[in-house]
Design a protein around this nucleic acid. Structure first.
Length: 464
RNA sequence: GGCGGCGUAGCCAAGUGGUUAAGGCGGAGGUCUGCAAAACCUCUACUCUCCGGUUCAAGUCCGGACGCCGCCUCCA
C-alpha cells in the first residue's frame, strides 16, 4: 500500500519492518471534554487506514494514547472539584461511546499517560544522561540545539520560529524559544497532578507521553504514526527529537497526517456556534453511519467541509447501497451465478483495491462500491440474478464493508404499533381499500417508516 | 512576514501529461406501480478560478494573479 509520508512529502510504499505486522501509533484524544466531529475526522481516517491495512492482509498493532493529564484537564478537574482520575474517566467513556457509534475498531492498546509516568521519567533520564537537556527553575527542557535534524518533519525554518507571529510566553526560562519542556516543575497545582522524579516533583510535558508509550509498546523504531495536521508542529517534531536523541535510532518510518475538517467553510469553534459533537448530531436525528460515510467520502489529505446538506447527501447515498444489500437477500431463483456477476465483482474489486492502495483513496474506493451496486441493480432489475449470484455480490459488498463499515443495513425491527399499522395496511390493500391503506402508509411515514411495495410483498425501511 | 495545502457541474467529490473529465446527491423525461417508494433507462461540465508559458498533447507540469484554508509552542 502506498501512503503519503509527511517526512518525505511523497506518496511512498508503506513498508513495515516486521511484516506482516504493521505497528501504528495514533495520537488520541485529550480527555477534557467531548470530542467534536473535527477530531473524529482524524480518527475515522486512521480507522479507515487500519481497516484497509487489514483488508490488504496486514496484521495491525495499533496503539492510541489517551492524554489524561495536561493544563486544561487539571484546570477543569480542579474547577469541578474532582481529581484527575474521576474527571477523565467520564470523558474516556464518552470517547469510547462515540468511537463505537462511528463504528471504529478499538485499537489493540489504549494506554493512558498517567499510567506511564515511570516510563516518561525514564525517557527524561536517558535524555539527561545523553546531554540533551538543561534545567531551569526546576523544569527540565529539551535543548533543540543538540538535534540538528530538528524541523525536518514540519519543514519549518527553525530561525523563523523565533520571529514568528506569536512567540509569546516566556513563562519559563528557556534558553531558546524552540526548546520545549520535558518535565514541568511543580507549581501551585493540585497534589494529584504531581509526581516524584529524580529531577524533582512535577509532571510530564505534553510531548513526552507519546514517545514513551509508543516506544514501550511498538519498539524504539516503528512503522507508522498518525494524527491531525496540527500535530506536525510542534508535537510530532518534538516527539522525533526526544525519541531519536534518547535512543540514537530512527523513531518512526512513516508519518500520516489528516487535514482538518471545516464546518460551513469555517474552522470549528464554540464561539462561531459550529462546534458539533457526535451526540449533537444524533440529537438532530442524523444517523451515525451517515456521519461516518461523510467523513470517509473525501480524501484524508483534502479539506473536507462539513455541512447539513452534505450529511443528507451521505445518508441518501448509503440508503442506495444498503437498499441494494437488502434486495439481494430477497433473490430466490435457482441456478448458477452468471458470468456477468463474476465480471462485475472482479471489476469493482480491482478498482476498490487500486484506490485503497494509492494513498487510501476512499472516495475512489466508494465509487467502486457504487459501480458494483449499479451493476448489481441492473441485474436485479432484469431478474437475471440467482441465489448464488446474489450471494456472490453480497460477499463482495461485505468484503468492501470491512473497510467502510456503513454499506450493510443494520438490524432493525418495527415496534408493535408500527407492525400493527403495517398489518392493517396490508389488510386494507387486500380488500382494495386504497384510501385507507394510504392513510396507514402516511401515518407510518410520519413515524419515520417508509414502505416499498413489491410483487413479493411489502418491505420497509427507516427514514433518516 | 515564513512554511504548507486547496480552488473540477446546482451541491459533494475522484482524476495529477494522452481514449467520450469517475462516483454520489439533486434536477428533467420515461419504464414499472392501485397510488407511492425503490430500482431501471435517457438526459444533466465541448470543460476543470483566471492569465501567461512548456509540450505533438495540460484539469494534470512551470510562472504569475485572485480566492479560500491550515501551521508558525501544548488545537485532531
Amino acid at each position: 500500500m502506498n501512503l503519503h509520508n509527511t517526512l518525505t512529502g511523497r506518496v511512498e510504499a508503506l513498508a513495515p519492518e516486521q511484516p506482516p505486522e504493521v505497528r501504528m501509533y495514533v495520537c488520541g484524544p485529550t480527555v477534557y471534554g467531548r470530542a467534536h466531529i473535527g477530531n473524529f475526522r482524524s480518527f475515522v481516517a486512521t480507522d479507515l487506514l487500519r481497516r484497509a491495512l487489514r483488508y490488504k492482509g496486514w496484521r495491525v498493532k495499533e496503539v492510541m494514547n489517551v492524554t489524561d493529564v495536561d493544563d486544561r484537564i487539571i484546570q477543569l478537574a480542579a474547577k469541578a472539584g474532582k481529581d484527575l482520575r474521576s474527571f477523565t474517566a467520564e470523558h474516556i467513556r464518552s470517547f469510547e461511546e462515540d468511537r463505537a457509534t462511528l463504528r471504529m475498531d478499538p485499537p489493540e492498546l489504549v494506554p493512558r499517560a498517567t499510567e506511564h509516568i515511570p516510563d516518561m521519567i525514564g525517557l527524561v533520564q536517558r535524555l539527561i544522561d545523553r546531554g540533551h537537556t538543561y534545567t531551569a527553575d526546576g523544569s527540565v527542557y529539551f535543548k533543540i540545539a543538540t538535534f540538528p535534524e530538528y524541523g525536518r518533519l514540519s519543514r519549518l525554518d527553525v530561525a523563523g520560529i523565533r520571529s514568528g507571529a506569536r512567540v509569546d510566553t516566556d513563562k519559563y526560562d528557556k534558553e531558546d524559544a524552540r526548546d520545549f519542556v520535558l518535565w514541568k516543575a511543580k507549581q501551585d497545582e493540585p497534589e494529584w497532578a504531581q509526581w516524584d522524579a529524580p529531577f524533582g516533583r512535577g509532571r510530564p510535558g505534553w510531548h513526552l507521553e507519546c514517545s514513551a508509550m509508543s516506544m514501550k509498546y511498538l519498539g524504539e523504531t516503528f512503522d507508522l504514526h498518525c494524527g491531525g495536521v496540527d500535530l506536525i508542529f510542534p508535537h510530532h517534531e518534538n516527539e522525533i527529537a526526544q525519541s531519536t536523541c534518547a535512543t540514537g535510532k530512527a523513531f518512526v518510518r512513516h508519518w500520516m497526517h489528516v487535514t482538518h475538517l471545516l464546518v460551513d467553510n469555517e474552522t470549528m469553534s464554540k464561539s462561531k456556534g459550529n462546534f458539533y459533537t457526535i451526540p449533537d448530531l444524533l440529537e438532530r436525528g442524523h444517523r451515525p453511519d451517515a456521519v461516518r460515510y461523510l467523513l470517509s467520502a473525501a480524501h484524508y489529505r483534502k479539506p473536507l467541509n462539513f455541512t447539513w446538506d452534505g450529511l443528507h447527501q451521505a445518508a441518501t447515498s448509503i440508503d442506495k447501497v444498503q437498499g441494494f444489500a437488502r434486495r439481494l437477500d430477497e433473490v430466490d431463483r435457482d441456478g448458477p451465478a452468471l458470468a456477468v456477476v463474476e465480471e462485475a465483482v472482479r471489476m469493482a474489486r480491482d478498482a476498490f483495491d487500486r484506490a485503497l492502495d494509492e494513498d487510501l483513496n476512499t472516495p475512489e474506493a466508494l465509487a467502486a462500491v457504487h459501480e458494483l451496486v449499479n451493476e448489481g441493480n441492473r441485474l436485479l432489475a432484469e431478474g437475471a440474478l440467482t441465489r448464488e449470484g446474489a450471494a456472490r455480490l453480497r460477499r463482495q459488498l461485505e468484503s468492501m464493508d470491512s473497510v467502510f463499515a456503513v454499506l450493510l443495513p443494520g438490524e432493525d425491527r418495527l415496534s408493535t404499533e408500527e407492525q400493527a399499522l403495517l398489518d392493517a395496511r396490508q389488510e386494507a390493500r387486500r380488500k382494495r381499500e386504497f384510501q385507507k391503506a394510504d392513510e396507514h402508509r402516511k401515518k407510518l411515514e410520519e413515524m419515520g417508516v417508509i414502505l416499498e411495495d413489491t410483487p413479493k410483498g411489502t418491505r420497509w425501511r427507516r427514514k433518516h
